[in-house]
Structures are given as C-alpha cells and as structure tokens.
C-alpha cells in the first residue's frame, strides 16, 4: 500500500500478466471512473486486488480471464488499427464493455463484482465515503453510548396488542 493506504502502486500481478493487468486497469477505469473526490479505479489498486483474489480463488480464473479475453477479442474487431483497449476513446471502450456484458454476462458480472469489491475495500475509497479502515478497533463507538429514551415507547405501552395466554 502507498502512503494513503491505497494499493495502486504495486506494478505486477501474481496471476495476471503485465498486459492483462494493464488491460484490467483500463477496463476498471470505465467501470468505476473518477468522480469528484472519488478516485478512478486505477488509482485505488483495484486491479491488484483482483489479481490477489485470482491467486486465492481458482474459481474466479475462468470467468475473469474469460472476460478479459472477450474484451480483447471485441476490441480487435472494433479497432482495425489494433491500438488496444486502453487507447480507444471512452465511448468506444464503453461500447465494447456493453457488448461483452451482453455476450458473456456471467463472466462480465464476475469481473464487475470483483472490481467493486477491490474498489470499495481500498482504504483511500473507504476514507472518502467515511468508513473506518479497518472497522476495528474504532468502530462507531459513540453511537453505542447514547442512551435510549424510554418515553419513546409510551404509545406502544398503552396500545400494544397483548400476548395470548396459553
């Protein structure tokens, strides 16, 4: 992780090749682009996170590698100049992703799930949306110390349906 706690500066994957990792970063930036204070996926290390998941879970390899392969093939069809997905304009990239989402929905969904998981478990993202990173030991301790006002239950005490004697 870098100084902000993000994993974005790890260059190489364990399972993914450098080319696959580069493609994944470009794809993820279309899936989760930057917006205001929210960083784009590539700045969070979501790609390295997915590589980690692939190393730990062999069940993810077929769908995610399959999705990347499908994106590569679709890119080749749409890009006669063979510049590669990362070099296309945003509209073209999105068109390719929509095409793969339609043709390989299970694989694409797996890629999306793991991208969201990698993105929202990144400390820099968690800091932006205001959740402790990690949750422990801080939690949200103050909310558990505020006391309940029993007067809120006055109506219920007066009107509740009784339990049936049996």
């Amino acid at each position: 992780m870098n100084a902000t706690g993000s994993r974005s500066d790890q260059p190489n994957g364990t399972v993914l090749s450098a080319d696959e990792l580069s493609l994944l970063r470009a794809v993820q930036d279309r899936l989760v682009p930057g917006d205001g204070q929210m960083p784009p996926a590539h700045a969070t290390g979501a790609a390295i996170a997915v590589d980690t998941y692939l190393a730990e879970r062999t069940d993810l390899r077929t769908p995610i590698l399959g999705a990347l392969r499908a994106i590569t093939i679709a890119t080749a069809v749409h890009d006669p100049a063979h510049a590669g997905f990362a070099h296309l304009d945003g509209a073209s990239q999105d068109a390719i992703l929509h095409e793969v989402e339609a043709s390989e929905p299970v694989w694409f969904d797996c890629l999306l799930v793991q991208t969201y998981t990698g993105y929202y478990t990144d400390p820099s993202v968690q800091a932006e949306i205001g959740v402790p990173s990690p949750l422990q030991p801080a939690g949200y301790a103050s909310m558990m110390q505020a006391t309940f006002d029993e007067r809120r239950l006055d109506r219920v005490r007066a009107t509740a349906r009784p339990w049936r004697e049996a």
Binding site: V32, P33, D35, D94, T117, Y120, T121, V131
Partner: peptide, 26 residues
C-alpha cells in the same frame, strides 16, 4: 448495507450500474 454490499446490491437491491453514473448511484 456496507460499501461493497451496496455496490453489489444486497437482498432485493440491484447491482449498481457501472460507468459514469456509478458514484452518484452509490
């Protein structure tokens, strides 16, 4: 839901859209 759960759509929640509108949806 927690952040990842929200993005994935917990229970009857829908998977949040990817792309330009994602952060607004989240």
């Amino acid at each position: 839901s927690q952040p990842v759960e929200t993005a994935l759509g917990r229970g009857p929640g829908r998977r949040l859209p990817w792309g330009k509108g994602h952060h607004e949806a989240h």
